[in-house]
């Protein structure tokens, strides 16, 4: 089925991409994470500038494939997803909707990212379950490249945090 060509606009593409989720954070879209830097529509050809969170993230290919499929469903004949590194993606690009969705999954969103990331960025991080800042970082590394492991001393729950990057 070919959609009406008129549907293929930058705005329509961005709306369609709201449905593309990070498979490892399945309630947060690539748009809310701030991974989509630019969308260019030329006739029935679309180019998307896509920034990885971590370069080695195994979910990148899944997201890129889904971006292509969603845009093709709008009637695009050719879709190209370009990986871009400038400016490097940082956690500051996440919007409030993404942050709230992370909290609901039990993942603490990052605070504003300092120019130089040090261990101070991991102190007193609010617990996504109870909000307490009496927390401690247990491991800089977690189940995915972008997450670290924490423990809340108040509600005695382990939790994950999205790393500042």
């Amino acid at each position: 089925m070919v959609s009406d060509g008129a549907a293929l606009t930058r705005e329509a593409v961005l709306t369609a991409l709201e449905a593309v989720k990070d498979p490892e954070i399945p309630t947060v879209s690539v748009v809310d994470l701030g991974l989509i830097y630019e969308v260019r529509v030329k006739g029935d050809e679309v180019e998307v500038d896509f920034a990885p969170t971590f370069v080695g993230c195994p979910a990148l290919h899944v997201m890129e494939r889904e971006i292509v499929e969603r845009i093709q469903a709008l009637g695009a004949r050719r879709v190209q997803v370009r990986r871009v590194y400038r400016p490097p993606w940082t956690a500051d690009r996440m919007n409030e909707r993404a942050r709230q969705a992370l909290r609901e999954l039990g993942i603490a969103p990052p605070r504003p990212v300092p120019a130089e990331i040090t261990l101070a960025a991991f102190e007193k991080l609010p617990c996504p379950f109870c909000g307490s800042t009496d927390t401690r970082m247990e491991n800089l590394f977690g189940p995915t490249s972008c997450r670290a492991l924490f423990y809340c001393n108040t509600c005695q729950q382990p939790f994950e945090a999205f790393k500042p990057l």
Binding site: R40, L60, Q80, R82, Y85
Partner: peptide, 8 residues
Amino acid sequence: MASPSPKP
């Protein structure tokens, strides 16, 4: 493995 492309 997919390849990143240069920017336009």
